[in-house]
Structures are given as C-alpha cells and as structure tokens.
Amino acid sequence: MSDIPSELRYSESHEWARIEDDGSVIIGITDHAQSLLGDLVYVELPELEINIKNGDEAGVVESVKAASDIYSPLSGEVVAVNEALADAPELVNSDPYGGGWLFKIQPVDESELTDLLDADGYEALIESDDT
C-alpha cells in the first residue's frame, strides 16, 4: 500500500501539493506514481521565474523504460526547483514527499488548492485505477 500523507492535496495526474507558511506551495509526485515509474534516472524541472498555469506541463520524470510529464496542479510563478535532483533523481523514489520534492510555486489563486483531491479522495482514485 502506498503512502498518502493526510495533510497534502493531490491531483488526478499524481502530483502532490503542500502549502508552506509563506504561502508558497511545494509540488512533487506521489509515492504511488514513483512506484509505478520505477527507478528514476532523470528529472527535468521547470525554469525558475516562469509563470505556469494549472494543468500545464512543468517537467518530466524519466525511468529507464518510461517517461512521464509532470503537470502543475496550481497556477503561479516557479520560485524554486529542487536542484539536488540533478545528481540524485533517486530521491524521488526514496523520499517522494521530502527530499524528492520537485518545485515550488507562488500561487496566484490559493483557492485552486481546494479543487485538488484530499488524501481520501486520492486513495479512492488509485484504488479505482487498480481495478
């Protein structure tokens, strides 16, 4: 069973989002997503300071046999990216909700967060995917 922290919000395309004290939002991919992809070998992240819209492609995660687009669950400006992933993409596998975060966004509309799934909703989604 994959790990689904209750305090996070989730997209249907398997990204998670966590709001920080300063109002910025950290984004990553879920434990479920990383386990489907297998060992990651490369992560392509968005450019700093660009503005992206909710649902836009914001990067790519690559394993040996698959590549999957990352979609931003929120609209806003990219204010940080996880540079550690350049040398250690495996962090996404080992610590998807911590050291394996992908990028940080300053959202234009925080209410977009409430449109995302909560942990129960996401769990229901991946269970229905399995059947």
Binding site: V41, E62, S63, V64, K65, A66, A67, D69
Partner: peptide, 12 residues
C-alpha cells in the same frame, strides 16, 4: 537514455 526515443516518448 532510451526515454528520449520514439518507442518510449512517442510524439514527444
């Protein structure tokens, strides 16, 4: 680096 290639990445 096969994830660059058409058999995996298809239209991208």
């Amino acid at each position: 680096l096969q994830a660059r290639e058409q058999h995996i990445r298809r239209s991208k």
